[in-house]
Amino acid sequence: MQKNKGFSLVEMMIALLISTILFLAFFSIVSQFQIWSSNLNLLMERDANVWLAPLLLSRWITPAGNNRWNQNWSGVAVQTGRIEINSDIHGPQGFPDSELSASFEALVLRCSKSNLRVKSGSGSFQPLIKNIADFEVDSENMPLISVRLKAVTDRPLFVLTENLSESTEFLFFLRNYRLNLFSEDPR
């Protein structure tokens, strides 16, 4: 009985030692696991919207200025951190009707509060793409427009100190600004 007790103490000590080592190993793995998982989540959140940007922007920017001849609005206006896109692309019969009536015909894009925001017609700015810290538009090489987006994570990543903002440049050739030998004036 006494022998059994003495043996249990040694056993307990060994067990404690092993347990401590295992606990430490386990928790370091779990914490690593958690850090990685959290970081990956942040990165995926950052990218989830930005990855759709070329689709969204190409659909809005490339047809800019459709049917703008003899109209009282310009097709594209670029200012610092802002682009205004006017395209008469739809009407009641399914064809341009010389009015910017549909919600997607008169758009303004700009960035604020870590969101790329869009304003349709006379409405207010609504978030379009999250996690965007900067939005720059360059129209120097018209009809080729360059759009730069700087995507950031919601909050800094754990442990890692590297810069996790991601800048991407998209180019859009404005099809309705292509040169024509003859005047586009609708006769």
């Binding site: 047809p63 692309i89 309705n176 024509n180």
Partner: peptide
């Protein structure tokens, strides 16, 4: 030889 005049382009 005269290219067509593009009057519109939309998606």
């Amino acid at each position: 030889y005269f290219p067509p005049t593009q009057l519109g382009w939309r998606i």
